[in-house]
Design a protein around this nucleic acid. Structure first.
Lengths: 155, 155
DNA sequence: TATTGTTATACTCTATAACTATA
DNA sequence: TATAGTTATAGAGTATAACAATA
């Protein structure tokens, strides 16, 4: 096979020009976010069977134990109705439980099971390793600089 | 209305803890990218009727005139079949044309119409303004630092 | 009256597989 | 045989509207 015909993940579409998008932050945010999701899928999801979305939900529940589905929806900036399926999935995986609220019979208090806590501890290690691997082109100082700049985009 | 009950885009879900995700680059990439899409939608899409995805496609076609749908698919890192509807939409909006390829009767060469060029010139101004507005918390030097760091995440 | 969780429904984006017409 | 474009179909992920139970 000729060198010019070789196609790998790294050099796919090598010659495409992006014009003024090269100076647009939104364009690079989008590309790097897609790359991050893809990397997460190939590592964490492949090994642990959990998607970025489910992982984020699990962390918010873990760090805000007892919050309601409505509170989770607000925190994740999605509609209440969109939360139901996700909570079902986490419950099906025995990672969380819907506890009856002691003060409001309409709502549930979401909490990790002890199994869920163990699982999350293991998954966290995989995610941390994935995150460092994904950003291995940056020094630790640059990684923190990047995170600091990103945080300032959404206050 | 009491101050404690006020809900705005800026202070939604003020009290939610994110645990170790606060040090995960992927988490902040996701949040800032979602914020960027939302801002784009409220400004550019609202005024010009074009989504971030369609805008990106249009720019790639504009900057690589004559490329085929397969080449566009590879550049956008999506399947050939997913390109069809998008190209139809851009054609329906009279922004591009499918020209017959002079060398391969199976494929089309995608090109902007003169109307498309005019439209893109106008849309570009809206996108540039949107991008600067979205990143107004950063100085121009910081914005470029951020773009430079992001680029290093995907080659 | 308003809110919580739920369901039904729909819309967008994307992928896979199979088809056609070319190469 | 292989490739370019297309279609049918399916799966995430999301939203809106309406409902029952409860506040």
């Amino acid at each position: 096979m000729k060198l010019a015909q070789m196609k790998t993940v790294e050099d796919a579409a090598p010659g495409v020009a992006h014009g003024c998008m090269d100076d647009e932050l939104g364009f690079h945010l989008r590309r790097s976010q897609v790359a991050a999701f893809k990397h997460f899928g190939q590592t964490v999801t492949a090994a642990e069977g959990i998607t970025p979305g489910l992982y984020g939900m699990l962390q918010v529940i873990a760090n805000n134990s007892g919050l309601t589905q409505s509170a989770l929806a607000e925190a994740m900036d999605v509609d209440r109705s969109s939360i139901v399926k996700v909570v079902n999935q986490l419950e099906d995986k025995r990672l969380i439980v819907r506890d009856a609220s002691p003060t409001d019979r309409r709502s549930y208090c979401l909490r990790l099971t002890s199994f869920g806590r163990n699982e999350l501890a293991r998954i966290e290690q995989a995610v941390t390793a994935q995150d460092r691997e994904f950003s291995k082109a940056l020094s630790e100082a640059e990684r923190h600089t990047l995170i600091g700049l990103l945080k300032r985009l959404y206050k």
